[in-house]
Amino acid sequence: MKKIVISKFSAVLVAAAIILMGGMTVSASAETANDNYNLYCVQCHGSAGTGKGINAPFLAVAPRNHTDPKAMGELSDANVALAIKEGGSAVGKSTQMPSWKHSLTDAEIKDIVALLRQKCKCTGAAK
């Protein structure tokens, strides 16, 4: 009888942990990096990430080519995250890159930085 009670209690604990972990995953990053990139970034940086989005011809400064390993490799992950969060002016670049801090969570920005590393096939410079 005691064993059955303990095993039921354990099952409840495991179920609660699964629910909590699931909830944490959702709240940490509600949207995937790809979905966020395709909605917020592609308009300027383009579907291929080469900086040739539909708005690019109208910008005074060409959007960053996310597939360029040399240029992207010179930037640290923290620098890229700061540019996304606070905008281009925060990293000494164009004000045409806006701040996305009200649209994206820190976790989503971190996921986008990881996605950009896949696009450039490069690692970030040391801070």
Binding site: Q43, I54, N55, F58, S94, T95
Partner: peptide, 19 residues
């Protein structure tokens, strides 16, 4: 135009982005 770059995405007085 200069600070907020609204024309990056909006056409303003005949010039600007299209998203």
């Amino acid at each position: 135009i200069k600070t907020e770059a609204c024309n990056g995405c909006h056409q303003i007085q005949g010039n600007g982005g299209v998203s």
